[in-house]
């Protein structure tokens, strides 16, 4: 490979005003649609207590005699279970609305925190090199080889069960991915001319890292981040499947799926199916938005 890579990369001073960003984003109809769907989902999640026919977290409102009812049945409480009920007699529609709240909170919350922690550490590792790099990367090794299940079990043992603790467990499990990815691209970027130029200008290190290095490492980071939100939600489902997730009386989408999993073979598909669809739609919409964001924000895709 020769040195044809002398790419005149534009130093990413944020010169694009917000309006231009919006219009570029809107170029893709699909992304707009994704944004719309995601907005609707977020609205449902926020308004769940006002629009759900039942409070699925209140044990007194549930009755096991209404358990595992087929979609469309009218239950003891007098309203129709449009999506059926789970084994506890929980209205699936209400369960999904409330579950969305928890899943979004857990998924997005953990992904954002993990992204900030991981990307910063990865950037520092790549830029500082040497001993700092070694220390951070070995920490990454340690983290990546530690099974998520064991980490979650330990956090559960130390902190007890709760939604916040699941977020902590997911951050602990996920940050290393971001760190590793960012370091990988930062290692390449920091050898490029614009960084050398910035260094020659004796700009402060922090400025170089966050103003120059970071924006150029963003595209792979956004790829990973949009996937990791999805993955965090799915991982939370897996933790719930293993009994390590959110409390059973406050199910997330993942826990609803995990709970219905046992009924798949016996044909009571709705317990697992509808939460699965809700999860899928949520994740697809996040990804449609994420894909376009990545393209719009990528300084190197600018003509």
């Amino acid at each position: 490979m020769s040195t044809t890579t002398a790419a005149p990369v534009v130093a990413p001073r944020v010169e694009t005003p917000f309006r231009r960003f919006v219009s570029e984003f809107a170029e893709s109809r699909l992304a707009l649609f994704g944004l719309l769907v995601f907005g609707a989902i977020a609205l449902i999640a926020i308004l769940a207590p006002f629009i759900a026919p039942q409070n699925p977290y209140d044990l007194a409102q549930l009755d096991i005699m209404d358990g595992r009812m087929e979609p469309g049945t009218v239950g003891g409480a007098g309203f129709t279970y449009w999506l059926g009920t789970d084994d506890q007699g929980r209205d699936m529609l209400s369960g999904i609305m409330y579950g969305l709240r928890i899943s979004l909170l857990v998924g997005a919350g953990s992904a954002i925190i993990a992204c900030i922690v991981g990307a910063s550490l990865g950037m520092i590792a790549a830029y500082a090199g040497g001993r700092t790099d070694g220390a951070i990367m070995r920490l990454v090794d340690l983290q990546l080889s530690f099974p998520a299940i064991l980490a979650a079990l330990m956090i559960l043992a130390f902190l007890g069960k709760g939604i916040l603790n699941v977020v902590i467990a997911l951050v602990v499990v996920e940050w290393a991915y971001y760190a590793r990815t960012v370091r990988g691209s930062a290692l390449v970027e920091r050898r490029r001319e614009y960084i050398e130029a910035a260094q020659c200008l004796a700009l402060p290190t922090r400025r170089i890292i966050f103003r120059h290095l970071l924006p150029n490492c963003l595209p792979p980071l956004i790829v990973v981040a949009t996937m990791q939100i999805a993955r965090a939600i799915a991982l939370e489902a897996t933790l719930s499947f293993l009994g390590l997730g959110v409390p059973i009386t406050e199910p997330s989408l993942g826990l609803l799926i995990a709970n219905g999993y046992e009924y798949m073979l016996s044909g009571k598909y709705w317990i697992s199916f509808y939460p699965g669809i809700a999860l899928l739609v949520t994740i697809v919409s996040i990804n449609l938005v994420g894909d376009q964001l990545r393209d719009v924000l990528n300084p190197r895709l600018k003509k």
Binding site: I64, Q88, L156, G243, P247, T249
Partner: peptide
């Protein structure tokens, strides 16, 4: 974990407000 939730429902109806915690 399903049994303790069901009992949680029944106790709550009898006036003992029950929260349920299922652990490994």
């Amino acid at each position: 974990s399903r049994i303790i939730q069901a009992i949680g429902q029944m106790w709550t109806r009898a006036g003992v407000r029950t929260s349920v915690e299922a652990l490994p």
